[in-house]
């Protein structure tokens, strides 16, 4: 399952990044808190495919499908 598949109000733990995601973006996402082992909650999933809001370490980020679908969660 990817982060993009996470339903609103649910949480999951980051497992890995897809290889399609460039290493510099993986580093950046890790620095923002999206690193393997971290629990992420989907706080809002707007309709019509708009970017979703994810909460990590007391911070909320908006990620679109092009990024969130490259983060594997469990």
């Amino acid at each position: 399952m990817t982060l993009w598949d996470l339903k609103q109000g649910t949480s999951a733990t980051v497992e890995s990044f897809c290889t399609a995601l460039q290493s510099e973006y993986r580093t950046r996402l890790s620095e923002l808190g999206f690193h393997p082992g971290e629990q992420i909650a989907c706080v809002l999933s707007p309709s019509l495919g708009a970017p979703k809001l994810y909460r990590v370490n007391n911070t909320v980020y908006s990620l679109d499908d092009s990024v969130a679908s490259l983060i594997t969660v469990a």
Partner: peptide, 8 residues
Amino acid sequence: DLPFVLEM
């Protein structure tokens, strides 16, 4: 190009 990651 940078992916869309925006802090709220």
